[in-house]
Nucleic acid binder design. Structure first.
Lengths: 167, 167
DNA sequence: TTGGAATGTCAACAAGACTGACTTAAACTG
DNA sequence: CAGTTTAAGTCAGTCTTGTTGACATTCCAA
């Protein structure tokens, strides 16, 4: 009874509509900050956010197939293909026919592709690092925990698989 | 000396490139979850995310001017105007000429506009609430702290102003 | 070996962002 | 009062990025 009062009176205050609304707006504004720096770099190169995403995930899973990338990015293959085509044409990505299954294309960054990925990544990480440092380690742990809980189950699985694949 | 070692050896581990990379990916996947539910509702109505954003901010700042909305949403007036025009035509938003300054248009949700905003809001808050509950109050505090630190200074000001205006 | 499933490509289109040029009306200022 | 600035809206054109639909190639299993 006392606990129930406590829960309703204090602990659950963070679940009020107003608190949720503030969280929603924070997410909206923060995402803009999150994409701003890479977007600025890309604007000068006639590339867009979609190219950045492709570079990012090819970089962290070299040799991935188009289909695999598709399920991670959550777009249609036609949409991804346009982006991929320009990246291949411009020599940033290499697409190799699969050895076992010749229908598949395995994707790799070229030297130039890796260089651009690094530029974009550095810019994005710089802001992230500043935010992390300002907020402190406990806040960062909470940040990650809430983000993970917000993902669709499929995406959470994809995300956790990526984490395992690395350190 | 001992503290410096502690800082570098333990406390700062959350600032490694790999940790930042994971945070970046978490942000990407979570934002998809964040927009998914309202997007599904909007898809059936030939509206898009842009309409949702307009409805949201008109709802929480009734009587706001077009210029004001522009600076919050961070888009061009041509882009906002297209969205606003359809919302007014469809009777979801009302645009009243300013009393003091007749150049200004003050924006309000109609009954129907408020109803749609509520639907979208409810869907988005439901997911947010589930994530908050799952992560717990301390995590939520950290989440908010990191998001705020990620915003551009201008956006942070706009965000804090909105918070003050309410509870 | 033939028909279906999987993989990837091409073409056409729509939403939503952008720029630039322009109009209208109202407000401000010298 | 004349001229300038400001707020809003419009028209035209472009770009990115998403969508469907049709199609070629390859694999696999009946």
């Amino acid at each position: 009874m006392a606990e129930s009062q406590n829960l309703q009176g204090e602990t659950l205050l963070y679940l009020t509509d107003e608190q949720l609304r503030q969280g929603i707006e924070a997410m909206f504004f923060a995402y803009r900050g999150f994409t701003d720096d890479p977007d600025r770099i890309l604007a000068g190169l006639s590339y867009g956010r979609a190219h950045h995403r492709a570079l990012h995930f090819i970089n962290c899973a070299p040799g991935t197939t188009v289909n695999n990338l598709l399920s991670i990015l959550g777009v249609t293959k036609q949409s991804l293909n346009r982006v991929l085509r320009t990246l291949v044409e411009d020599g940033l990505v290499e697409s190799r026919v699969g050895r076992n299954d010749k229908r598949e294309r395995h994707l790799y960054l070229t030297e130039a592709g890796a260089a651009l990925e690094r530029d974009l990544s550095d810019a994005q990480r710089a802001r992230m690092r500043a935010a992390y440092r300002q907020a402190g380690p406990e806040a960062v742990a909470g940040f990650r925990k809430v983000l993970e809980a917000m993902m669709d189950p499929d995406m959470r699985r994809a995300y956790q698989k990526l984490r395992e694949g690395r350190g």
